[in-house]
Design a protein around this nucleic acid. Structure first.
Lengths: 150, 150
DNA sequence: GCAACTTGCTCAAGTTGCTTGCCTATCAGG
DNA sequence: CCTGATAGGCAAGCAACTTGAGCAAGTTGC
């Protein structure tokens, strides 16, 4: 295997390991904070809805799934009290999915859990390098798939 | 949201985006090279088998799934000619799963695809920073889950 | 050297998150 | 108004995983 290929494979493995570890840590933290009926996938929907709500179609595009799948996910969130469907102000076909207070509380819990998970990393690399790493990553794959897959 | 939390969330999103983009690019590259009957998950099994083979139990641990699931995956790889089961030299209960020549060819294709996908990134950041990024990532989550999840 | 437990693997059945296919309601353009 | 496109929901099916049970081979303790 050429050196270039070895670097690429190592990068891939490390990316997946870090992404997986962070996702798992956030998920665990959210669970510990009392939200034990959600999967990581829901968090990505929350993030998309946080700013003024989103339609099912928008959520589907954001998550990289079909509209039907996104609709089922919203059904679940609605049944569990994290989100609710409201009529869309501009389009009678569409329905705006917005977070409930419980949904916003869960979002805050996720942010705290994320901070807790990342804190030891800042200790490992130093905060400067961690910020640089975050920025570099952002340049590599802007708009990459935010796909759960667990 | 506190600044610390914002950094943590941004890091998470960027990690997932980069990991997802790279995984998708490798998968596409492997597909283009003629291996169109595999999913990304299989690649992780290949990587574990590459060095002398692995048992089903080892694969299960590596992939983070049950032994039954790993066994099904091996069934599939065997049916498609990428791997084969051989008696384990030291333990008559166990069976050693090893790559066939076709499996090794696919592994090489994946390495080439990974190098192709990463090359533009080296152009973006410079090779030094890319190596530093890879090394930093490796320190963050050593032994993190190498889980497919697509 | 035999009984009791553990480990490696497989078969079978059930769950689930997603898909494809089809349908209605609404919008936008001529 | 029609015509086509878009938002969403209903239903059925699928595919990757799970839990549960069982057999063969290894390991431990007396």
């Amino acid at each position: 295997m050429k050196d270039e290929e070895a670097l690429a494979m190592a990068l891939g493995v490390n990316l997946l390991a870090a992404a997986g570890a962070l996702t798992a840590a956030i998920h665990d933290g959210v669970l510990v904070r009392g939200f034990d009926d959600l999967r990581p996938a829901h968090g990505f929907a929350f993030a998309r809805m946080a700013a003024g709500g989103a339609t099912v179609t928008e959520l589907a595009a954001h998550l990289g799934v079909t509209r039907q799948a996104a609709g089922q996910l919203v059904d679940e969130l609605e049944a569990k009290g994290y989100a609710e469907r409201r009529p869309h102000p501009d389009d009678a076909r569409a329905r705006l999915v917005v977070l409930t207070e419980r949904g916003r509380a869960c979002t805050r819990a996720a942010e705290q859990a994320a901070a807790d998970a990342v804190r030891p990393w800042a200790g490992l690399l130093g905060e400067d390098r961690l910020r640089a790493l975050t920025a570099d990553l952002g340049r590599l794959a802007p708009g990459g798939p935010v796909r759960p897959t667990w």
